[in-house]
Nucleic acid binder design. Sequence first.
DNA 1: GAACTCACCTGGATC
DNA 2: CGATCCAGGTGAGTT
Lengths: 178, 178
Amino acid sequence: MRRREHMFDKVVTPSDVGKLNRLVVPKHFAERHFLPQLLPAAGLAAARLAGAVLRFEDSRGGGRAWAFRFSYWSSSQSYVMTKGWSAFVRDRRLAAGDTVSFCRAGARLFIDCRRRRGIPPPAAPKPFVPFMGLVATAQRTTSDEARRQFVRLFGVDLEVAGADEPPVLLDLQLALMR
Amino acid sequence: MRRREHMFDKVVTPSDVGKLNRLVVPKHFAERHFLPQLLPAAGLAAARLAGAVLRFEDSRGGGRAWAFRFSYWSSSQSYVMTKGWSAFVRDRRLAAGDTVSFCRAGARLFIDCRRRRGIPPPAAPKPFVPFMGLVATAQRTTSDEARRQFVRLFGVDLEVAGADEPPVLLDLQLALMR
DNA sequence: GAACTCACCTGGATC
DNA sequence: CGATCCAGGTGAGTT
């Protein structure tokens, strides 16, 4: 058997292992590694990708085979694996932060994954939006990260005006009720 | 050009201008004014609505054109405008309580909107977002206007708690980022 | 009819 | 900056 070459890795996101049942394949990897496989000669002809199936062997001992539908979502300009993917997630208990790894040996494709290393993720305290407030002029009591999170969630920024106020050390918490 | 006939108005809800990116079109208006347009002869055949696009001219001077995807959501049994709608909301800075207005002249459709008049309806005591830890007890420095703006934007109200904090003279400003 | 699947859509982040 | 990418959603169809 030919030597196994590494193609690419992806650290999976919460969406990749969640209810969306799809893995987003970063475009440059998809176009470098999967498209040539599927379209041996011609140009992209993305339309022909409809229904394409990629088959992988499990790098683990079992030699189990996996089949994933691979397609291009033109609305989001991205490549995805859909059908079959969630079975892999379940079987391997893939979690956000883990890494999936794709290799090949000639025409044979292989998939593997490994557990995340290092610090477990910021254990999303969901219903709660931890918000540390704000800022005064002199003393910015809040991390920019917290602030950006607020902006991301609500689409607006909060700003505290009143430069002559004593710097305040407030810790704000915002709980979404519904 | 034919005379412009008024079709219907809707006072938009917080959801209509919020993150759901859709306008709910009251069913009787949808079936009276839009369905005949899309299904000139036949019965409802809701399936044929998939992907229907309605094009409107802006009643404002510019004559700008708007295209909205119009469809039926069987889960909620309601007609909606989806794709394209949020662009209109942004462009016109449409806010909850404002009115959108639909007219036609022959086959041409027109859209317009107008600002809410009068006092904003008693700040819809929606689900409450308890906002803990902040600010003025005796002295509520957050202007009511800022607060109403928040309610308008998010459809929820904020409550300030933390009676034992030293009264702070902060002025919370909501600054729209975009 | 609940759960799953999938094509479509949007906005934040980034280049 | 405008354009692109992609993470996170949605509804509709299927099982």
